[in-house]
Design a protein around this nucleic acid. Structure first.
Length: 938
RNA sequence: GCUCGGAUGGUGGAAUUGGUAGACACGUUGGACUUAAAAUCCAAUGACCAUUGCGGUCGUGCGGGUUCAAGUCCCGCUCCGAGUACCA
């Protein structure tokens, strides 16, 4: 009887679905374990072989944990709002909801055929109103809270208002926008309602503000930096300009320090933590105030080197600052305006690419040095970024390379404040070995001491203070897009007002046209009908109508990361219609025990979700401050792209081996599915594949056309996608699962390559044969031999250890060795085969289930206890030791035994530690290597 | 530039954390079974030398060091990958 994987897999998948085998109990006496995968975005191309890598690993671990007696929550869902569905809608006029549903169906079918043990009863979709109701609700909570620096947590805006009524904002220590004015309680009560609301926006965690964005008028939308190439839009090549727009933002900066500190408590990959640390970018330094000559205003700068304050010879401010207009001297007006126009045309990308050139202009104004009162010229330079620190820099050319270059370029004096250092050619930046000189009260001090003293002095005279600055910027939350969560806000006198919980979900309306308009009017503006009608209030045509009063609604939608920032809590209580997660469920499941996903989300999803978690923890809605105890980044499975080479300007393609090195050819990607394993191209299929190849000329070599290969990310646009479906068809899901694990360590990226798949498939066939002879299952209830027991228990030990350390590739090897050895011994003992099948079950669940049933077990294998290694079977017989043996051993040994053996005595006496021993020090363990030396482990 | 990873046979990768390097698998070669093929099984397979039998030498990117013992630890390089980039 052959291993009929297709039928076995169908049989068990149907049975699992019917019996709801993997449904997690809501509450259980068993210990809980929550294993989460990053949910997929259901794209049009379906799953490729790279997607399931992490899912296979988490599935193995989930099945293992069930065998170990845990109540395992292993859910799955879809991150179903997003750009590609909307782009597709724009092109074809199909509603994104429709295409999304189709894609989800395909994904589900593909996930099921891999035999994953997901609890589908808890499925979530971010684009479903039942789900985004709560995303909108969380947004409203963020809108309704501010960050208090004293208690170091979010607090209700209500308390903020109380504080303003009693004290104004002077004595308040809260996170707020940079340009928040100071006011007293008297002033506060004098403000109009609108003025008050406007000020409150400076404190809210979700707030509306004027933000500079990359605006593309032709596409009618804001673009992210990576959507712009060489100053024009990546899509269509249109011009991109900078524009100030009212945008919703999230005050993630308020949580910078806690996001940093929290990393110490969680078991996440060090490299990923490092990425988050760099992204948060903490730097310790000082704020220094410089009085502008002839003005009341002061310019505040942030510096990490306040010790170099006596080296300041000019100041540079970012061209975007409003301050620029105010302080520009009439004589310089023309030059400054010209420069600002110039920089505005340059996109951020151009500015970034153009590190070499040094541009700037003098404002004609001066600030006064806080200690020497010297006049310091104020320059404008676009090497200063408006949104880092205060957008102004005290330039110390002797100690900073950029300031040095700027000074050299514009011929500004450079003052040396370092002892015994030449600054002729470049700035001196090595702070650790510097000694300050030529600096009044700081002369002769080291960098560390000077910083302490200068900060004291600054604080004393009120012209600065020690401070910490973070690189992390507040996250822009508005998107001029259709396929996302509507922001639950309406406008009263142009001020944002929150909708109420009873209004939620604010459904995404139907529109005729998904394209945003050229003025930046979002596509929701095209909406004809909005969905709800609550008592007196209703929403019609972008308007909230309340008692005959009409208010416009917010038309922007939320970004992709909104729904994914909290979805893992929804799984705990997916059907709850009264809360985003019920208290009882949150208390039982608490947090994710193991999270698997790609490191590409390090500074996106994985940071934003930690931010929302901390916020929801602050306001007592969640029990823990970090939601994922342990995180593993699975590597990417890369594609092996195929290239054909075209002579420029012709339709002539040349087989790979016929290419001379000197020839310049254009590489063009072809679908890898049209290439066989020897890199030979199916020319006829290529002609049918794309019209450009229809009449092309292919120069063959020995009757075949060979392609070039390159390893790249697997993506539809690179035509290198391999779908798992065919492999499941040809080898079965169990083979695919084990093969993907066998490929290498889970964290490692690797190119997809099917050449080794037969090895794994052979193993499963061999495993099947271990139990079969002809059509009969052959299992004997006989006492297993010592040797068989030893093989089994060694394997149990290894597999258990390796699964717990997520070393799934070595698990597969371990099982292979075990089966090879048992085959050689012709083992048919039930006492061996039964536990062995349990060991296999997480990896090849269909095969294991089938054999388990054939062994006559009444229960299914899924929740049976995992075998435990019995050490007594593993102990080596050491009696015949030590002159010759196979394998390596570690054990405690009486020294006298070995020293009596003259064959090894000579070697032993070379070992310093033996001498130590003879002098009275006791070793703990010895390791003996034949013909070599004795090792002693203390 | 900065930060973090990595480098082991023809290939993917093991190595109990300092203790027989190359497990397991692919590939290759030879053999068995077969009219033949497929399937399956067996053997060899790091390199070089010796192969009449044993055997020997070198080997974990390069150069040093610590140690009885280094793929593993330390110092200095080279190359590759990832992240980030005028962050004051």
């Amino acid at each position: 009887m052959v291993y009929d994987f297709n039928n076995i897999e169908k049989k068990w998948q149907a049975r699992w679905a019917k019996n709801k085998t993997f449904k997690a109990d809501s509450y259980s006496k068993k210990p809980k374990y929550y294993i989460l995968d990053m949910f997929p975005y259901p794209s049009g191309s379906g799953l490729h072989v790279g997607h399931p890598l992490g899912y296979i690993a988490s599935d193995i671990y989930s099945r293992y944990k069930r065998h170990k007696g845990f109540n395992v929550l292993h859910p799955q869902g879809y991150d179903s709002f997003g750009l590609p569905a909307e782009q597709y809608a724009i092109q074809t006029g199909q509603h994104p909801a429709k295409t999304t549903q189709e894609n989800i169906n395909r994904y589900r079918q593909q996930l099921d055929q891999m035999g994953f043990s997901f609890d589908w009863s808890r499925e979530v979709r971010t684009s479903e109103p039942d789900f985004y109701k709560w995303t909108q609700w969380i947004f409203l909570l963020l809108f309704d809270h501010y960050y208090c620096n004293i208690s170091n947590m979010a607090k209700p805006v209500r308390e903020l208002i109380e504080h303003f009524e009693k004290n104004g904002n002077e004595s308040l220590d809260a996170v707020c926008s940079f340009d928040t004015p100071q006011f007293t309680y008297v002033e506060w009560s004098g403000f109009s309602e609108n003025e008050q609301q406007d000020l409150l926006l400076n404190y809210r965690l979700a707030y509306l503000s004027e933000t500079e964005v990359n605006w593309c008028a032709d596409l009618g939308t804001v673009l992210a930096n990576d959507e712009i190439i060489n100053g024009v839009s990546d899509r269509g090549g249109y011009q991109v300009t900078k524009k100030k727009m009212k945008q919703w933002s999230m005050r993630i900066g308020a949580y910078a320090e806690r996001l940093l500190k929290g990393l110490e408590k969680i078991d996440w990959p060090e490299s990923l933590k490092e990425m988050q640390r760099n992204w948060i970018g903490k730097s310790i330094g000082a704020k220094v105030l410089f009085q502008i000559e002839g003005y009341e205003k002061k310019i505040e700068v942030f510096t990490t080197r306040p010790d170099t304050i006596f080296g300041v010879t000019f100041m540079t401010i970012a061209p975007e600052l409003d301050l620029v207009q105010e302080i520009t001297h009439p004589d310089q007006k023309e030059a400054v305006t010209a420069y600002i126009d110039e920089t505005q045309k340059r996109t951020q990308r151009e500015r970034m690419a153009d590190i070499e050139s040094c541009t700037g202009v003098f404002t004609g104004s001066y600030v006064l040095h806080p200690f020497t009162q010297e006049r310091i010229p104020i320059w404008i330079g676009d090497y200063v970024l408006a949104d880092y620190g205060t957008g102004a820099v005290m330039a110390v050319p002797c100690g900073d390379q950029r300031d040095f270059d700027f000074a050299k370029h514009f011929d500004i004096p450079i003052k040396n404040i370092f002892k015994n250092v030449s600054i002729e050619k470049k700035a001196f930046t090595d702070k650790e070995i510097s000694v300050i000189d030529n600096s009044d009260f700081l002369s002769g001090l080291s960098y560390e001491k000077a910083i302490k003293i200068v900060i004291q002095k600054l604080e004393l005279q009120g012209s600065g203070e020690g401070t910490i600055n973070y690189r992390l910027r507040d996250a822009i939350f508005s998107r001029q897009r259709y396929w996302g969560e509507p922001i639950p806000i309406y406008y009263k006198d142009k001020l944002p007002q929150p909708l109420k919980l009873k209004h939620l979900p604010l459904d995404l309306p139907e529109v005729e046209n998904y394209l945003p308009t050229a003025e930046g009017y979002p596509p929701l503006g095209n909406a004809v009908t909005w969905a709800w009608d609550t008592q007196k209030e209703k929403v019609v045509e972008n308007k909230l109508i309340d008692n005959q009063t009409i208010f416009p609604l917010e038309l922007n939608t939320m970004p992709g990361w909104a729904g994914s920032s909290w979805y893992f809590y929804r799984y705990m209580d997916a059907q709850n219609s009264d809360a985003f997660v019920g208290n009882k469920a949150a208390q039982y499941w608490r947090e994710v025990d193991l999270y698997l996903g790609g490191s590409e989300h390090a500074t996106g999803h994985l940071l934003y979700s930690r931010f929302w978690q901390k916020f929801l923890f602050d306001i007592n809605l969640l029990p823990v401050e970090e939601y994922a105890k342990k995180l593993i980044n699975q590597g990417m499975i890369l594609g092996n792209s195929a290239f054909v080479y075209r002579k420029p300007g012709t339709q002539s393609y040349i087989s790979k081996e016929l290419i001379h090195e000197s020839e310049k050819l254009e590489p063009i990607r072809v679908d890898v599915n049209l290439v066989n394993s020897s890199d030979e191209l199916d020319v006829e299929s290529v002609r049918k594949w794309q019209p450009q190849f229809e009449n092309a000329d292919f120069k063959l070599n020995n009757g075949v056309f060979k392609v070039g290969r390159e390893v790249e990310k697997m993506s539809k646009s690179k035509y290198n996608v391999i779908n798992p479906d065919e492999i499941c068809e040809q080898y079965g899901a169990d083979t695919l699962r084990m093969y993907e694990m066998f490929l290498g360590p889970i964290e490692q990226s690797k190119p997809w390559n099917t050449s080794g798949i037969s090895g794994v498939h052979n193993f499963l066939k061999k495993y099947w044969r271990l139990f079969h002879e002809g059509n009969d299952i052959i299992v004997k209830d006989e006492q297993p031999s010592k040797k068989e027991l030893k093989i089994l228990h060694e394997t149990i030990k290894k597999i258990t250890y390796d699964i717990e350390h997520f070393s799934f590739n070595t698990c597969v090897s371990g099982l292979m060795i075990c089966v090879n050895e048992l085959t050689a011994l012709n083992c048919h003992s039930r006492a061996i085969l039964s536990p062995l099948t349990l060991l296999l079950s997480p990896f090849a669940p269909h095969l294991a289930s089938e054999i388990w049933e054939k062994l006559g077990n009444q229960n299914t294998i899924d929740h049976v206890d995992f075998p435990v290694a019995n050490e007594s079977y593993l102990i080596e017989d050491t009696k015949n030791y030590p002159v010759s043996f196979n394998g390596k051993m570690r054990f405690t040994l009486e020294l006298s035994i070995d020293l009596d053996n003259s064959a090894i005595q000579e070697a032993v006496l070379q070992d310093k530690r033996v001498v130590d021993y003879l002098e009275g020090k006791t070793p703990k363990k010895w390791i003996i290597v034949p013909n070599k030396i004795i090792n002693i482990v203390y």
